[in-house]
Design a binder for these strands. Structure first.
Lengths: 218, 218
DNA sequence: TAGGATTTGTGCGTATGTATT
DNA sequence: TAATACATACGCACAAATCCT
């Protein structure tokens, strides 16, 4: 009975996360023009509260509202992408140093599950599943720090550029099966680090993986 | 003739920065209830665009709108303050490592001017001038990196907690004259590092100064 | 070039929630 | 406890800007 209270503030937060998910999953690709009226109708709210959500997404750099034109999903140029990646690589290694949380058995089993998903993905590669897996991997790693500003910042940066990676995959600039193979090795390494309770190694592994991913993406 | 075009988007950005400044300078202290109608009247806009500004400030953690109560300036508890400071200290040292910008003679003279202001402050200590100086010092250091996400993140975090420092000063938990004395020494050190074109030393100096400032504030 | 269609931005009246008397 | 005052949240109508025919 935890579903559907969703009144007022919570409801708007759900809409925010849902639209963000659609942007990340390229359901709304860069350049797409969203309609305030259509979205408002879909979610059963008026334009006013919906615009509150779009304003947040605009502040996060995912949308750009232009008077008389529409609400457009932003694109990310290579330089901006590089800057975000460089910063994210530095923030990753802060996780074990800033208010690290205890690694419980639940945490470990969570990473074991992520690795299983990676193995399954290797046998049935799909770009969207890949993106969802990487997002959940990010969230799992991000949850290892108790530093709220760090978590908020990392999340903001992740969703700022995650769709570009999926876009590169989809555009076949990158070989999907090869990427899945690589990702399996990476999740295996990360799982080993978690099981060894070595967060420092874990964060540096992830940092290296992000760097390599960016290299292949260029 | 660069003033007062200020139509539409720019005007709202100005209002945003102005309200943020008032919050930081304790003109709107934590707990203060702002009136949408009063602010809208002051800036000559309707409540609707003003609420767009307040929404951004709420997303930045400076305000909290409560239905039926008002728009309240947030307070910052000690744990949140500590988390923000710990993260800021790590971001500072990234400035010379992530897309550092060339240190021009204009940059150096800018820091020289900041040091002069610190000297003047020592002879006429005033809490508000102190806060303004520290803000400009932050902005000057932040401008040394060309990494836009880093700059945006650092700015967000700075304004999240800057008012608490001023609040501690004003509440006489801290000796203002002593702080001014300390700040002069710090700006002298920072100026020397800038003149030596040593950004790495500069960032670690600032990091140490922030750490010490937090220690005295507790 | 001009005009109509469509979109976001704005203004305002009302609904809803909270606190106080 | 009830009523009053006052705040934000919401919905709608219109203004302003842009694009396309």
């Amino acid at each position: 009975m935890s579903e559907e209270p969703a009144t007022g503030r919570d409801r708007l937060a759900q809409i925010h996360d849902l639209i963000r998910e659609r942007i990340m999953m390229l359901e709304y690709p860069p350049g797409e023009r969203l309609s305030e009226a259509a979205l408002a109708a879909e979610f059963g709210v008026s334009r006013t509260p919906l615009r509150r959500v779009l304003a947040s997404l605009e502040d996060e750099g995912l949308l750009r509202s232009v008077h008389g034109v529409g609400t457009i999903v932003t694109d990310v140029d290579l330089e901006e992408l590089a800057q975000v990646y460089r910063l994210r690589m530095e923030l990753i290694v802060l996780i074990p140093r800033l208010d690290p949380l205890p690694v419980t058995t639940e945490v470990i089993s969570g990473f074991r599950e992520l690795h299983q998903r990676a193995l399954a993905l290797r046998h049935a590669p799909a770009a969207r599943d890949f993106a969802a897996l990487d997002r959940d991997m990010f969230l799992a790693l991000n949850a290892l720090s108790g530093n709220q500003p760090l978590r908020d910042t990392s999340e903001r940066l992740y969703f700022r550029t995650a769709r570009i990676w999926l876009q590169a995959i989809t555009a076949s600039d990158i070989d999907l099966e090869n990427e899945a193979e690589i990702y399996c090795r990476e999740t295996a390494e990360i799982l080993a680090a978690v099981e060894a309770l070595n967060l420092d190694a874990l964060s540096h592994l992830r940092r290296a993986h992000i760097a390599m991913s960016f290299s292949r993406m260029r």
